[in-house]
Design a binder for these strands. Structure first.
Lengths: 207, 207
DNA sequence: ACGTCCATCTTGACAGTGAATAGATCGGCT
DNA sequence: AGCCGATCTATTCACTGTCAAGATGGACGT
């Protein structure tokens, strides 16, 4: 019954430091962005010493990597929750795109971090697995299969990669201010659905 | 005739420090990536003191911003040099995509930096202008106009944004290792042309 | 020719960071 | 009861970005 006092008492052993650090680190990341992130600040907010994170995450890369991995999981869950029944392919893909963009806007710093882990020489197999999972979710929406069944057959069609690239590229460009600078919130415009209308979604011969 | 001795003599006044710093900074950036960049190291390699860059670039953001702006210019020049005469729209766009991807692969650290300047709160008008210039180059290739004439009429059609998003997204995903991990060099595969074949390039009514 | 001005560069200092080492604390297990 | 190992702290080091103050020397007017 040690796990009971998970509230941040001032005991020597925190009891739930790993989770608390992930929480405070996310807070710091959100406020300062990836560039200004500080592990010491995260530890400070969690109420522990500067080197406490070492035992749980190794170094800064480990801490950020854990945050990124969790973010991938959240994104995948949202993508897997996209409604498919009774919708045609274009509606399904548009729904997926909306979800993708919403995640990026609501978790901007996290979204930035997610696509920058290789730059930190962070290649966790768990993280790679989540990337695969995202691709499978995309495949499912394209095929229109109901949620749950994610058959691994032929993961990554040309259509999947095309849709992913288009949506991801648009999101990145919009967040970087390269698109439609007169619009207040490019992520909320109807440009993305219009672009998706240009893509041939039928499962063609190409692979 | 002061500008003559641009070689790195050990004079007090370097004579060409700005250019030399850009050079050494690019070197450091290429070796260590954005995360490990150090302005002191750049100054060290240029053979000047740690605070010499201050007068020319202000702070680190200024130095990186100057590098990013120069990179945008280089990318734009390559995009503007894409051959158009005697090719159909799909061939033209494929040529542009190849150029885009080649630039990203040959200047990986710079490419990373380019899309991370807003995160540094760096919003230089010159940089914004170069983004516009890239979009105009894209428009030109889509319309098939010969190089040189970049009429500003209707900049940024849905097709332009779609192609840009697709190519940029694919490049980013590939560099991050999210695509086709069994291929040695995803950027050299024929997946990108296959994806572009799915996009309707005809100037439609949509806007 | 000469003195002054000012852009340019150096020196020195300060606060903050990531990381490593050694040691303190304490829960759980035999 | 007592030890062991997981967990956390204290201290230190090298490094970074940034600032203030001063040194240097080329340019330019007189």
């Amino acid at each position: 019954m040690v796990t009971e006092q998970a509230r941040t008492g001032d005991r020597y052993h925190h009891g739930n430091l790993r989770a608390a650090l992930l929480e405070s680190a996310l807070e710091v990341l959100t406020e300062t962005g990836v560039a200004g992130f500080s592990m010491r600040e995260a530890a400070r907010r969690a109420g522990v010493s500067q080197s406490a994170p070492k035992h749980h995450f190794g170094d800064t890369r480990g801490l950020l990597g854990a945050l990124a991995t969790r973010a991938y999981r959240q994104l995948c869950e949202r993508l897997e929750g996209v409604e498919c029944s009774g919708l045609d392919a274009r509606e399904r893909v548009t729904g997926l795109a909306v979800e993708y963009v919403a995640f990026a806007r609501d978790n901007r710093a996290l979204f930035d971090l997610m696509w920058r882990m290789t730059q930190f020489d962070y290649d966790d197999p768990e993280l790679a697995e989540q990337k695969h999972r995202a691709l499978r979710a995309l495949d499912r929406v394209l095929r229109g299969t109901d949620a749950g069944s994610t058959s691994d057959e032929d993961p990554g069609s040309v259509q999947s990669y095309a849709v992913w690239s288009l949506v991801h590229g648009y999101t990145s460009l919009a967040l970087e201010g390269a698109i439609d600078e007169q619009a207040a919130d490019p992520l909320a415009s109807d440009l993305l659905p219009a672009m998706l209308r240009l893509v041939d979604l039928r499962p063609v011969d190409g692979r």
